[in-house]
Write a protein that binds this DNA or RNA. Sequence first.
DNA 1: ATTATAAATTATAATTATTCTAAACTGTTG
DNA 2: CAACAGTTTAGAATAATTATAATTTATAAT
Lengths: 142, 142
Amino acid sequence: MTKNFNFIEKLRETGLRPTKQRVKICEVLFNRDKTFHFTINDLVKKISEELNEKISLATVYNTVHALQKKGYLKEISINSDKSYFDTNTTTHHHFYDEDTHQLIDCDENEIENVNVKNNITGKKINSVEVLVRVASDNQNQN
Amino acid sequence: MTKNFNFIEKLRETGLRPTKQRVKICEVLFNRDKTFHFTINDLVKKISEELNEKISLATVYNTVHALQKKGYLKEISINSDKSYFDTNTTTHHHFYDEDTHQLIDCDENEIENVNVKNNITGKKINSVEVLVRVASDNQNQN
DNA sequence: ATTATAAATTATAATTATTCTAAACTGTTG
DNA sequence: CAACAGTTTAGAATAATTATAATTTATAAT
Ligand SMILES: [Mn+2]
Ligand SMILES: [Mn+2]
Ligand SMILES: [Zn+2]
Ligand SMILES: [Zn+2]
């Protein structure tokens, strides 16, 4: 109740109508203490698990994109067949576990500032992000 | 002629039969002095421009994946709707121009070594790569 | 509260990149 | 020159995403 009210306000403040579906999606996304990295499919699964509702796929896409446009979600590209989203919207680095296909945030102090010495003329740098691909130690690929 | 002969050898060495199509694709990919970053669509376009042949889409996909598996091409994920490939197969960093959707290699000395201080337990680091997103200076997005 | 209006949700169709299939074709080997 | 495995190909299938258009809902005005 109190939780939902938070999201209703938050959505309203950013010009998104607090519809039943948007509030429920916000609950699933933001009512957690750790950063949430997910695909649309992950999210749809969580919605039907954690809540008992079925929100249409189109609405899930629409809402995730709306939240992204308002700066509440960040999109991340790891492999080309699926989009990942991230509730941590700051510029930050990731580990990607190639065994489990899980994204994990790097802590602030795990990678020191990446210094880009020369930029492309006439362009401004929007973000500098590192992707560390990791996999099981005992795995030989030929 | 001499050029093609190179690729015939190269392909044969890696256990790929030097078919007409594969040799032509190699020509388009590797007969250039600069690194080539491309999508499958870019490649298909180049093939019909630079050569006058039509190679079927399935063969282009098959060949690119075969070359990738053999280590002659590297796949890069920038956005989730398309795959990029890269003739530079070393671990290296990129600029991504969000205006033109072009990938550009960072020079060795443009970004100093990224030091990952803590890795995930039981995992080994496969690669550490930086993506620098750039865009036109005079562009305001709201 | 009722109504009017614009915005959102939904089922479903369309699109797009990619992969699969199975038949026709070609390179290699004996 | 066969024979056989590997390759190419057109087209079908798949999977993520986006578009459509009718229905429903949220909010503002009455
Ligand atoms: Mn992929
Ligand atoms: Mn796709
Ligand atoms: Zn993250
Ligand atoms: Zn490159």
